[in-house]
């Protein structure tokens, strides 16, 4: 039985070209079609093809979602310093900040989790473009309601066959790294609306 989820909001933010929107799309695809949640994914980017700020918002819920944009974040993934500075104040009290530790040199708080994702992609995979999939693997580890199998299926359904093997490798790398460096999923998410919904009670007529 899958966990009941109240409105859970994630924002991926970074620079244009880092794969921020693809990342949101694949996570959303996996959670919506693989795990059966209601998901809305919205995006915001500048008119430039590369560079400039880029962000992708996900709202995940067991109930229908009215407002599709994120307002107070449960998880902020910041892949650039600018994005981190800009969106940190949108984090909910107790929300989790995930950063790319080489890009965000000055985290706004000491409470964060992070990995040098770009470096990992270059050194372990030899493919800097696969950075976003490593982030996806790490996030799948920390989200208690995301199933790795559904995410891998989402990767296969959204990416061209040529780069699938590489991205599955990147996904596994992200999961492994998160397991060793992040520890178990944050406790606040376990008790926060994650319990089963109480069945509706009504008078029998």
């Amino acid at each position: 039985m899958k966990a009941h989820l109240k409105r859970f909001e994630i924002r991926f933010s970074g620079l244009g070209g880092q794969g921020v929107i693809t990342l949101g799309r694949i996570l959303g695809h996996g959670l919506a079609l693989g795990c059966g949640y209601n998901v809305t994914q919205t995006q915001s980017y500048g008119p430039e093809a590369r560079g400039g700020a880029s962000r992708s918002d996900l709202v995940i819920s067991s109930d229908p979602i009215s407002y599709p944009k994120a307002e107070s974040l449960d998880l902020l993934a910041a892949l650039s310093q600018e994005a981190c500075n800009k969106f940190y104040r949108h984090l909910k009290p107790g929300g989790i900040l995930l950063i790319e530790t080489d890009m965000v040199r000055q985290p706004p708080s000491n409470v964060f989790i992070g990995l040098p994702f770009t470096k990992l992609a270059k050194e372990k995979l030899g493919a800097p473009q696969a950075m976003n999939t490593i982030v996806l693997g790490a996030i799948t580890h920390i989200l208690p309601f995301a199933q790795p199998r559904a995410m891998k299926k989402a990767l296969e359904e959204n990416l061209p066959p040529k780069i699938q093997a590489m991205n599955l490798k990147a996904f596994n790398l992200g999961q492994r790294q998160a397991r060793t460096h992040f520890g178990p999923a944050p406790e606040i998410w376990e008790g926060n609306g994650m319990d089963e919904k109480e069945p509706d009670q009504r008078e029998v007529l």
Binding site: R25, A32, V39, I65
Partner: peptide, 9 residues
């Protein structure tokens, strides 16, 4: 733009 660029199930 929001309706057009929102992904949903």
């Amino acid at each position: 733009e929001i309706t057009a660029h929102t992904r949903e199930k």
